[in-house]
């Protein structure tokens, strides 16, 4: 474990807590893409299957349980909670996220570390995570008013994988030069997708104005 990775995990955890706070405190999920939350739930289930087979550390196992249960809780809230589900922007959250799932799965069948069920699921989860934010970014561009908590949620979510990239660089130079193309390339794509959001978020912060993404 190195500082970059720990910072990344904490930023990731924080993004989930911010989203849970927003939904719980305001009893509203306006501006939040349910499709992105569903994709993240698939990412965590597909990647953390080894939760019951390989024990790596208490930290590792606890964080996996937290990510799976929190993403499931958010999806449940947006689908079933009587007050929250009413505030879901159904007609704005129109990204065809099934395409992302299919494309990631095909990619995982072609590019994986070993053609085994677990490795293909792992690669699938890495590819899917890289693009899972797309429905949320599209929704942000559509819903003009981005409330602070939703903006902070996306900001922390983008920052977490950026910290992971620093972690991979650090590990490459300190733990023997093993190349891990799959997470590296996917992580770069994932962080690049946030580039324009980071840019407009920074502008809104600098000029102290509401965050507005250009359509």
């Amino acid at each position: 474990m190195n500082a970059f990775r720990f910072l990344g995990d904490m930023t990731h955890l924080f993004s989930v807590l911010v989203l849970l706070l927003k939904i719980y405190a305001t009893k509203s999920c306006s501006g939040v893409s349910r499709k992105t939350q569903e994709l993240y739930m698939v990412v965590f289930v597909a990647r953390y299957m080894d939760l019951f087979t390989d024990y790596i550390s208490l930290y590792n196992s606890v964080m996996k349980v937290v990510f799976i249960t929190s993403s499931a809780a958010i999806v449940w809230c947006m689908r079933r909670h009587p007050q929250v589900r009413r505030t879901y922007d159904r007609d704005q959250d129109t990204f065809r996220h099934v395409v992302l799932v299919a494309a990631s799965f095909v990619l995982a069948l072609i590019f994986n570390e070993r053609f085994t069920f677990r490795e293909i699921c792992w690669a699938f989860s890495i590819y899917l995570e890289a693009v899972a934010i797309l429905p949320q970014l599209v929704l942000l561009q559509r819903s003009r008013n981005v409330d602070n908590l939703t903006g902070q949620y996306v900001l922390f979510l983008g920052a977490y994988r950026a910290f992971y990239i620093l972690n991979w660089i650090y590990r490459y130079f300190t733990e023997g030069h093993t190349s891990r193309w799959i997470p590296w390339i996917a992580g770069l794509v994932q962080t690049a997708l946030y580039a324009d959001f980071f840019y407009y978020y920074f502008l809104s912060w600098k000029n102290n104005v509401k965050l507005e993404l250009p359509a």
Partner: peptide, 10 residues
């Protein structure tokens, strides 16, 4: 086993 085998990252 090698790092690549053991997925120790989240």
């Amino acid at each position: 086993d090698s790092y690549a085998e053991k997925k120790d990252e989240l």
